[in-house]
Amino acid sequence: MNMVPTKPEPAMQAQTLPTIELQGLEKWYGAFQALKNVDLTVQSSEKIVICGPSGSGKSTLIRCINQLEEIQGGTIRVNGKALTNDPKSVRAVRREIGMVFQQFNLFPHMTILENCVLGPIKVGGVPRAEAEEVAHEYLKRVRIPEQANKYPAQLSGGQQQRVAIARALCMRPKVMLFDEPTSALDPEMVNEVLDTMIDLASDGMTMICVTHEMGFARKVADRVIFMDHGEIIEENDPEQFFEAPRHERTRGFLGQIA
């Protein structure tokens, strides 16, 4: 309860470039427009929660940020630099951005430790010994240090998702993206993952989380964003968002998930 992260002062934000800046983002799947003129600015160590009905474009939005999806219009800036399609710069951007998926997506043929050191060694050029040290440190932080030599299939869903978080953190990203990290979990495992995310938030990580865990949103989010039909409908601090939603559609949605 008393773990509420400190929110950055507005004065501090103005000095630094936004970590993520989306301007007029347009995404089409063939003739279907999945994102319509989306603008979003995320400052360093801000926590954003995105919610909205199924198919509203939440996953598409965060997948565009680390270029798992190509965009058809608008610009994405990460730390002030506009993204391009050049494979080298795509990879450079992805190194700065950690991503956690709904389905964990751990590599089944590697141990937990190997999952965690693959990126640092092969992408970051970190020596193995150092990478393993860092990995152990993060595994400790997600509270599964003793599972390092097991394989993903030997872990519970909640443990796997925490490993996925540790694996992303091992790249020392500037921002973490979460796409419904708890919705594939059995209910009793949801909290262990949310607690890990709350820890991360209180360490000052910049986070963009697609989630319908409203308790988490209230506790951690600086801003909550509601999307519908590929648009950002409403954006507000959690208090206002939940207590006094401005839009009819937001109210309808909150009524449904409550």
Binding site: A92, M99, F101, L106
Partner: peptide, 15 residues
């Protein structure tokens, strides 16, 4: 699974 490949790309691995 496509997700395996995406997770690997997300870490920054080349094709």
């Amino acid at each position: 699974n496509r997700g395996q490949i995406e997770a690997a790309q997300a870490i920054g691995l080349s094709w």
